[in-house]
Design a protein around this nucleic acid. Structure first.
Lengths: 338, 338
DNA sequence: AGCAGCAACTGAACCGGTTTAGTAGTTGAC
DNA sequence: GTCAACTACTAAACCGGTTCAGTTGCTGCT
C-alpha cells in the first residue's frame, strides 16, 4: 500500500501540513523539523500521489502537443519523432509526461485544445507549425493555457518562442548553387500559411538578391509529395526553365526529383535539387539528395524546458535562438548545365 | 467557476451520493430522481473534474504508448503516425488521452513503464514491436498494468492481441515475383528479435516452399538503412546472386535498391525489389517501389478499443485479426533476367 | 399484523494532497 | 515590563468526486 503524508506525519510526530511544507521546500517549518520529515519520508519510501497533488494544486504535470498534420505527412517527416524524443528528455527531469493528440479533421484542432483544458489534462502546450494569423494564439489566451511557440508568430503573441534562423540554411543552399554556376534557381515553397513556409521563401529571395539574381521562379505547394510534383511541373514548363530547385522539405524534393527524371531530365545534370530536413531515406535516393539538416531533438528539449520554466513562474523576456540548419551536400546538386 | 456535484445536489435537492449514482448510471436512485438530476446537471453545465474522478476512482483516463525505437527510424516509418491517429479516434470517444513516451536509452523502456505506473499516469498500455521473449509481458504483470499487444507474443501472455496476418502479404509479394519468373528470391529480414521480423521471414520461407523454391538467400538486418545496405551487399556478393529481394521494410528496400544501383545493377532489370509499409516517399523513388500496404490507422483504432474494453471489464477471449497487407505493384519489380 | 428483503435515499468517510486561519512561543524595540 | 512582529507549528477546510454504512419506507409473503 502506498505511503501517504499522513503516514509520514505520524512517524515524524508532526502535522500533515508540516510534512507538506517540508516536502515542497516551503517556509513554515524549522530546519531541524524539515530534516526529520525528509528523512522519515525517505525511510518510509514515500512517493507523491500525482493524482492527489493534481487535485489539490490544480495541475496536470503534463505538457500537450496537438499535431494537426495529416498522418501520411508525419510518416515521412523526420522532425516530429526527434522533436518528441527531445521533449521527453526535458520532461523526464521533471516527472512530467507528454500528452499527444493528432487532430486532422476540420475543427478538430480547436476542439482538441478545448478538451485538454476542460479535462485539466495539460499545464501548457507546445505550438508547432505556427501559421500566419494563427488562431491558436487567441484561443490559448481565452483558455488561459500557457504555451511556447516554435518560431515567433507574425501576430502579437505573449508566449515565449524558440526559433531557428532558417535563413542561414536556405542561404547556404542557394549560395552552394550559385557557386555551382546556377543563375535560375527556383523555390518550391511549403504552405505559405505557415511561418516556416514564408521564412524559407523569404530566405530564398534574400539569398538570390544578395547574389544579384532574380527571384521570379517560385511555385507554392503544401509540403506534400503531390504538391511538390505539381509545383515542379509548373516550374519545368517555363520557357526559362530553372536549372536548380530549392524545395521547402525533403518529400517535395524527392517527388519533384522523381518527376523531373520521369520527364527525361538528368539530376543533377539538367536540374539540381535541394531539400530540407535531412530525412533518413534521402541519402538513399538516386541520386542522394542535397538537403538541410536541423536538430529537432534539441528544439524539442529546449521548447519543453522553456515552457516548464514558464509554468514554474519564470518569465522569459527573449526568444530562444537555436543553431541554423546545416547544408548536407550530396549528389543531387551539381554544376549548372551550359 | 466550475460546477461541482455539490452544486447539482443542492439544485436537485438530493445528496452528492445520489448525484454520483445518477451521473454514472449506477443503481441506487429512482428513475424519476435520476432524470431530475441529469436535467439539473445539464442545465447547470456540470462537467466532471477528471482530476477528482481520477483520485477517487484511482484511474488516469489515459492509455500509454512507450516507443523504444530510435527517433531516426520513426521518421521514415509511416506506421506510427497513422497508428497514433487511429488510437486517437478510439480515445476521443471515451474522453481518454494518449500519453506518449520515447524511450531509446538502455533500460529506459523499463524505467518508463515503472514511472507511468508509479505516477498513476495510465490505465493501460499498447505494446508495439513485440519481441521474442518480450520482457515487457512479465514486467506489466508485475506492475499490474493492463495491456494489448500488437501480434500474439511467442511466450505466454494474458493480454489480448490484435494481429495482422503478415503471411498473406509476403506470400503475395513472393508469388508476384515467382510469376515474373524469379527463382532466386532473397529476403532481408528486420530484427529477428521482433515477432514481426520473424513472421515476415517465415512467410517468405513458406511462400518459397509452396513454389518449390529454396529459401537459402536470407540476410538478417535491423530495419535500418545501413543494415539494409549491409545485408544487400552480402546477398549480392553470392555467386548465386538473387534476382529479387523481399525486404522487411521500405527503408531497407530503399537503401538496398540504391546500393544495388551504385554497383551498376539495374532495378528491376537485374534485381527486383519489394518493401513493406508503403511509405509515402516510396512511390517517388527511382524506380518507384513495389511494397506492401497495411492499415496502421485501423490497427491503432482497434488496439485502443480492445484495451478500453478490457479496462471496462470485458474479457476478450480471442485475438482480433485485421486484414492482411495489400501488395502495391510499382516499377521496382519486373521479369527475372535471363 | 408481523417480518424479511429490497429500493431509495442519506451523511460521512475516503482518495492524498495543499492551503488557510488560528495559537503559542520567542525576539527585539521602546 | 509591554507590545508588535515573526516563526513554528496545528487542525480543519478544501480540491471534487466515489463508495460505504446506515436509515426509512415500501412490498410481498406468511
Amino acid at each position: 500500500m502506498a505511503v501517504t503524508i499522513s503516514d509520514v506525519a505520524l512517524a515524524a510526530g508532526v502535522s500533515k501540513g508540516a510534512v507538506s511544507y517540508a516536502l515542497n521546500g516551503q517556509p513554515g517549518v524549522s530546519p531541524d523539523t524539515r530534516d526529520r520529515i525528509l528523512r522519515v519520508a525517505k525511510d518510509l519510501g514515500w512517493k507523491p500521489s500525482l493524482r492527489a497533488k493534481g487535485l489539490s494544486s490544480a495541475k496536470a504535470y503534463a505538457l500537450g502537443l496537438v499535431v494537426a498534420r495529416d498522418p501520411s505527412l508525419l510518416g515521412t517527416d523526420p522532425f516530429f519523432p526527434a522533436f518528441i524524443a527531445g521533449i521527453e528528455t526535458a520532461l523526464a527531469e521533471h516527472d512530467y509526461t507528454l500528452v499527444l493528440s493528432v487532430a486532422t479533421a476540420p475543427g478538430a484542432e480547436e476542439r482538441c485544445y478545448r478538451k485538454l483544458v476542460d479535462n485539466g489534462r495539460v499545464d501548457g502546450v507546445i505550438l508547432t507549425d505556427v501559421r500566419r494569423g494563427d488562431s491558436r494564439i487567441p484561443l490559448l489566451l481565452e483558455l488561459k493555457l500557457p504555451a511556447v511557440t516554435l518560431n515567433r508568430p507574425d501576430a502579437s503573441s505573449p508566449f515565449p518562442a524558440v526559433s531557428v534562423d532558417e535563413s542561414a540554411g536556405i542561404f547556404a543552399a542557394v549560395e552552394h548553387l550559385v557557386t555551382l554556376g546556377h543563375r535560375r534557381i527556383a523555390h518550391v515553397g511549403g504552405g505559405q500559411e505557415y511561418i516556416h513556409g514564408r521564412s524559407r521563401r523569404q530566405a530564398w529571395e534574400d539569398a538570390l538578391a544578395a547574389a544579384g539574381l532574380p527571384s521570379d521562379h517560385f511555385a507554392a505547394a503544401d509540403f506534400t509529395a503531390a504538391g511538390g510534383v505539381a509545383a515542379t511541373a509548373e516550374l519545368l514548363r517555363r520557357a526559362d526553365r530553372p536549372t536548380a530547385i530549392v524545395y521547402a522539405n525533403d518529400l517535395m524534393a524527392t517527388a519533384g526529383q522523381s518527376y523531373a527524371q520521369s520527364l527525361g531530365l538528368s539530376v543533377p545534370g539538367d536540374l539540381s535539387v535541394t531539400g530540407y530536413d535531412n530525412a533518413e531515406f534521402t541519402q538513399y535516393l538516386n541520386p542522394p539528395l542535397t538537403t538541410l539538416a536541423t536538430d529537432p531533438m534539441l528544439w524539442g528539449r529546449v521548447s519543453a524546458q522553456v515552457l516548464l520554466n514558464q509554468l514554474a513562474g519564470a518569465h522569459q523576456s527573449e526568444d530562444t535562438a537555436l543553431p541554423a540548419p546545416r547544408l548536407v551536400i550530396r549528389a543531387s546538386t551539381g554544376p549548372a548545365p551550359d
